[in-house]
């Protein structure tokens, strides 16, 4: 099978990946709260949308209005992409509610129903880029590692077949170097991007590192990352002692 690439629009990142992420791959975006996961995902969606690729953003942790009002601060964000339906932002909690899933723990049936709805939406909207923010909040409701594995695996396979590239965000405690809360998400993902920080002269510098990317010859160098109104920008991290 030959795959095309899916550009994020973040120059250095795409360059590292040989132009972009393999189309149809599932990438875990790992970072603690405030590390820029949501921004990275949005930039990924918007960049696709500007090229006519439809995208969907499933949010669990942040309410819709908060998410969009944060996005307005970025120059890359274009309200019209949402208005014309190129990007659809979906509040997963409403889906939970509509499925009657108000319990904290889901049964296998619940999980399948949820997976089904996410798949249906991806199909209906014919998206090429999909984000779930965060997979951690979702996994929290699944009762076992097997269920988590099954969920991510099935979702990934379905989306890969649809040539839809997927970003899943994974929330970890600050100052830790693990990739996921449940220790399982990272094994199913094709790629892992780690958003961390390093200390320099008492200041914290945001970093981004491609930890793993199946089928791509990438380096594991760390990038310094900045989040400004222009969104995420990268520059090779100067070596700190």
């Amino acid at each position: 099978m030959t795959f095309g690439v899916c550009e994020t629009g973040i120059e250095e990142l795409d360059a590292q990946m040989g132009g972009g992420f393999p189309v149809g791959s599932t990438i875990l975006i790992v970072g603690s709260s405030g590390s820029g996961k949501t921004t990275l995902c949005m930039q990924f969606l918007v960049n696709g949308a500007k090229k006519g690729e439809k995208g969907v953003f499933f949010t669990i942790t942040e309410p819709l209005f908060k998410l969009t009002s944060n996005l307005e601060k970025f120059e890359f964000f274009d309200r019209s992409l949402v208005d014309d339906g190129t990007i659809t932002i979906i509040d997963l909690r409403i889906i939970f509610e509509r499925l009657g899933l108000d319990a904290e723990k889901y049964t296998v049936e619940d999980t399948n129903a949820l997976l089904g709805v996410i798949k249906d939406i991806a199909k209906e909207l014919n998206v090429k880029r999909l984000v779930i923010d965060s997979i951690t909040a979702l996994c929290y409701r699944l009762q076992s590692k097997e269920m988590i594995r099954d969920f991510i695996f099935k979702l990934g396979t379905f989306l890969a077949a649809k040539e839809c590239t997927t970003f899943l965000t994974s929330e970890i405690p600050p100052k830790t170097f693990i990739f996921s809360q449940y220790g399982i998400e990272e094994f199913i993902a094709d790629g892992i991007i780690f958003l961390g920080e390093v200390e320099r002269g008492g200041d914290l510098i945001r970093t981004l590192q491609i930890v793993k990317m199946r089928g791509v010859d990438h380096s594991r160098i760390k990038y310094a990352m900045s989040i400004t109104s222009r969104g995420i920008e990268l520059a090779p991290l100067l070596k700190t002692r």
Partner: peptide, 16 residues
């Protein structure tokens, strides 16, 4: 720029 330690930010801004 927040701090003179954020040298990479300088690089990014120049580029921009």
């Amino acid at each position: 720029i927040e701090s003179p330690t954020m040298l990479e930010r300088i690089t990014m801004e120049i580029k921009h």
